[in-house]
Design a protein around this nucleic acid. Structure first.
Lengths: 340, 340
DNA sequence: CTGAAAGCGCTAACAA
DNA sequence: TTGTTAGCGCTTTCAG
């Protein structure tokens, strides 16, 4: 079992197959590409030899000859906090799955966002969010590479993007709270330098305004999306003189932290405080009270991005599409009507 | 801003550069590969033309010509529960980062573990764990592709692997509890069909036996790693007639659930129950009591795997290495001495 | 239905 | 220091 054997380096080529099956390489090519017409006898012969020799055409030769690579890249900024979550994994999974389905090879590129990216031989690029790496996007676009941006609505660039309606989702969440009779509704924001957090804040305000409820700055608690910051925010929220009766939190993981803090401070959820999160992170399901939240269709977004990229590649010209996916509220147990 | 411009398809080749700079393509090749000796004047001329024409050598032609691809694949079974965690992301990040550093392209392959994988043109493959996809590993090995397995100690196959000493880590954890004076120590296992969970259980038992503490089946609660199962286990653990005073939980996310359940049942952590987790998942840091846990050097493991693969590729023959990384205990706040 | 031959764009001896 | 010339392995006209 510890016999050290060489990696067999003898690569059998299309020639070998042709010779062994007594046909020309052209015919072999036809067979492996299921193209044109080949006599049944020849086809079978070739197929057998292929199997026998375990022939695998060199993708590099194929790509050189055809000029197309079937490779797309997924670019993810490595250092941004947002990516240390369930979020990134879902994105990768969605993109990866759709690539498998579409027979595309997926090149994963974790970047530090500062250095210009060097991806060659790729037919298109998916940018998972644009955080610090806008320059990379612009470069790629300038080079004429088809690109699509996930999870960030880019309105000032001629590029396809697929994002979630963060503002709409937030508005839904707050409207729900208002329908339950709440008037004192707080918001724990995410990192508002990110588009998602900014839009969620915007949606929060819009819902209040549309319902003629005053937007009070003391009900808005900014954070950086971290649980630590959420904890701090939750404490001041709960200990306030005139505490809110409901809170919309910009992420589920923070919402869970808020729940925990509330319980530590002797508050009961949802009796003393109604909470709505955002993300539909599966961990919101556990714990004594399942979290009401806003669903982000991450997988779908990821999958759509691959499809869109594929469209762009096939089209051979830049005809960007801007797609905004709805974010619906998922009602579970963390809210209840306000009974003043 | 919505001008629809074509993707420039005119690919400039090494010929164009050669012509424009008045040298042969060989010289151009030398310049772009920083190989051999080129007169400074020519080099500068060429470099300028390259910049001017935005020439990017075709990697496919390069690879066809050189025979090497610089691409490695990371294979992840898509459907296994274990991968819906902080774990997978860390792995991807570690592997991705090291690939960038080593100038390797990373092909991400999410597989369903059943279908044989079809990755061609890759110089090596990293299997992130071997769960249902052992056949895929064996196939790749048989084809002579350099492979390394992460997070699973393969002792019956001639392949490199890098795993964590799960048994040792578990033993450390339980020893720590014993040193604190605990004798009634429970264990909430992971999915023991996975190697990691099985080893952790083994380490738990070993620690007890070495300290002449009887291993009681009623103190061992099997789960599938889910928080739901952890909740059930925690409830029976706490409500038992003679409840354990300490528990070693096979994952942090389950340990957090145990904490939550304990609190709901009016227990105080760590006064009424000492808890040690496993993973060093960052979410263990939050909450009122920071979780004592066993650190899994995931990133390091991931990085080492790329290095090892690189070694194998350079070596051109199969000389597997089995690496076991230590898992150390991280003492935080969730345990306290037993004061019978 | 099949094969010959011309590339795809680049690297790597081998000469010069 | 530089250029010439074979390929690398495959696809694709274009004849047959």
């Amino acid at each position: 079992m510890t016999r050290t054997k060489k990696f067999p380096s003898k690569n059998i080529s299309i020639d070998d197959v042709a010779r062994a099956s007594g046909v020309s390489i052209t015919t072999v090519s036809r067979v492996i590409n299921k193209i044109g017409s080949v006599k049944e006898a020849s086809r079978i012969k070739v197929m057998n030899v292929v199997k026998e020799l375990k022939f695998q055409p060199s993708i590099f030769a194929q790509r050189l000859a055809t000029g197309k690579s079937n490779v797309v890249a997924l670019v993810i900024p490595r250092y941004e906090g947002v990516f240390y979550s369930f979020y990134a994994l879902e994105l990768i999974r969605g993109v990866g799955t759709m690539c498998e389905a579409l027979k595309l090879d997926l090149l994963l590129h974790l970047t530090d966002a500062r250095t210009p990216l060097s991806i060659r031989g790729v037919e298109g690029i998916i940018f998972s969010d644009i955080i610090g790496n806008r320059a990379q996007l612009e470069d790629s676009l300038a080079k004429g590479t088809p690109c699509v941006v996930i999870n960030y609505y880019v309105d000032d660039l001629d590029v396809s993007c697929i994002a979630i309606d963060n503002a709409g989702g937030a508005e839904n969440a707050v409207n729900y709270l208002i329908q339950l009779g709440h008037r004192k509704i707080a918001h724990i924001t995410g990192d508002v330098t990110t588009q998602a957090a900014a839009k969620r804040l915007e949606g929060y305000k819009r819902a209040l305004e549309k319902n003629s409820i005053e937007v009070k700055e003391e009900y808005i608690f900014p954070t950086d999306y971290s649980r630590g910051a959420a904890r701090t925010a939750a404490e001041s929220l709960i200990k306030a003189d005139e505490p809110a009766t409901a809170v919309f939190v910009a992420s589920d993981s923070m919402a869970l932290e808020v729940m925990a803090v509330a319980r530590e401070l002797g508050k009961n959820i949802p009796d003393d405080l109604s909470i709505v999160g955002f993300d539909d992170n599966p961990s919101g399901l556990y714990g004594p009270v399942a979290l009401t939240t806003v669903r982000q269709p991450l997988i779908r977004m990821a999958e759509e991005s691959v499809k869109e990229l594929n469209r762009l590649i096939a089209l051979k010209k830049n005809a960007p599409k801007k797609i905004l996916l709805p974010a619906d509220i998922i009602i579970r147990e963390s809210c209840k009507p306000f009974t003043g």
